[in-house]
Design a binder for these strands. Structure first.
Lengths: 241, 241
DNA sequence: GGATCGTAGTGGTCTAGTCCATTCCGTCGA
DNA sequence: TCGACGGAATGGACTAGACCACTACGATCC
């Protein structure tokens, strides 16, 4: 960007700090340390609060990582993650990653009204709530919460504990194969629980993927919400318009 | 909050403030004012900075909107927006919205290396950079930056100024119809320019959609980056796994 | 009646601190 | 040699205030 620049829009000071950091940063390798907050504040003649505001955005973009007690470092590049997750493990291995799932909980309970509506069951009817952690190379990528009708998939929780994947269980034990899905993508700040599971900060921007899938007859099969770290993941999809 | 509370995960104080605001908020109608920052700080026995941190997350989630000089208000619900945008106008009208485009700029210049790579042209070869603002009911929804090969689409900028849509121009004047696309979705904070165009704040979380589309022969047609307000938009897609 | 001007109150930005939790790493002791 | 301890440095959370830009709205003036 050689041409006109930086005068028309009056920008806040923290944004100047951010651009300065961007310049310093992109000649460094991932993992390299960045000057400390107190040093930056002194060097740039500003307060630590202002420096932190700039750092906060760079962390949200996935360019820096902060480690309390240690320092701030240049982050690894984002990884890409496919939208269609019918074959989560396949897709991951295709990218040279070792994918794994960790079952956090699988409980049977009364469905909240919105969940019941999506599953096509009565409000208060029984539904499974399955919470899983998705990992790639043992690093947590996403928290996934799935809801399925308990009446339609009896004993689901027991089958899951054997370690097989949810879709495999649906196919083998119930003969159900998802045929279509509607997905929705939005952003939200991480709650303390998600932040803890995904090893990030409360309030960090997340990519929230909702997946509403149906079988061949058009009946709803499951309703899933996946929370991805926005600073480490880019979702990708192949479309045929 | 009658039940167990505030002990297992030690949460920062601003998160307590946030949850308090969530309760107060969801019994209010969109557009209702929320107490001012100074009042909240006094009521909750905390500092304005801490209240602002809580408000900031609620704004990022799309639950509140802030208007400088006026106050903070309960936000309208998010709108949904389709991923496949081949027929942007159709999709919008289907949702009962009046869609429109505003051409911000259409310039011919040398392609940066990454853009050139995506367009399948030599680095430094000529490319059009087309910047548009997408609106629904005259409210800005997204900023879109498209790159197309200048050699392949001569006089493109002139055709566009006539007001027709990009895809219509490609079809009518060049006989090109996009046949497939790869999309990528990630998050990023708004730059001052995007914030100004979309009437939001610098640093607000955005949904960034990259679209790399190809014609029937597999040759790249365009490379588009769309910036959506994360607090007002949910992207949706229909998939057939 | 209608336009203009002030002013009070709002959110936006920034400062200069404090104290805390965590990490790192050198020193000391067994 | 190896472990435990402790201090120093880091980022995390928070405070109490300052000044600015902007908005709303009433009072004033034509």
């Amino acid at each position: 960007m050689s041409s006109a620049e930086g005068q028309s829009l009056r920008e806040p000071k923290y944004y100047t700090v951010k651009r300065h950091l961007l310049e310093v940063t992109d000649s460094l390798l991932p993992g390299s340390p960045v000057p400390t907050e107190r040093v930056l504040a002194a060097e740039l003649g500003t307060s630590r609060t202002t420096v932190r505001q700039a750092l906060f955005e760079l962390v949200a973009e996935g360019r820096l990582v902060r480690r309390q007690g240690s320092g701030t470092y240049v982050a690894e590049p984002k990884m890409t993650w496919p939208l269609q997750m019918a074959s989560f493990t396949e897709q991951a291995t295709a990218n040279g990653l070792t994918a794994s799932n960790q079952l956090l909980s699988a409980v049977r309970g009364q469905a909240e009204p919105d969940v019941a509506g999506r599953l096509g069951i009565g409000a208060g009817a029984a539904a499974f709530r399955i919470e899983r952690l998705r990992l790639a190379d043992d690093r947590p990528i996403a928290v996934e919460v799935s809801y399925l009708s308990a009446a339609r998939f009896p004993q689901l929780a027991r089958h899951l504990r054997r370690g097989s994947s949810l879709y495999a269980v649906l196919h083998e034990h119930y003969g159900v194969v998802p045929a279509s899905a509607q997905e929705s993508i939005s952003t939200a700040p991480a709650t303390p629980r998600e932040a803890a599971l995904l090893d990030t900060d409360t309030g960090a921007p997340m990519l929230v993927l909702g997946r509403h899938s149906f079988d061949g007859t058009g009946a709803p099969v499951e309703w899933v919400t996946s929370w991805y770290r926005g600073d480490r993941v880019t979702l990708i999809a192949n479309l045929r318009p």
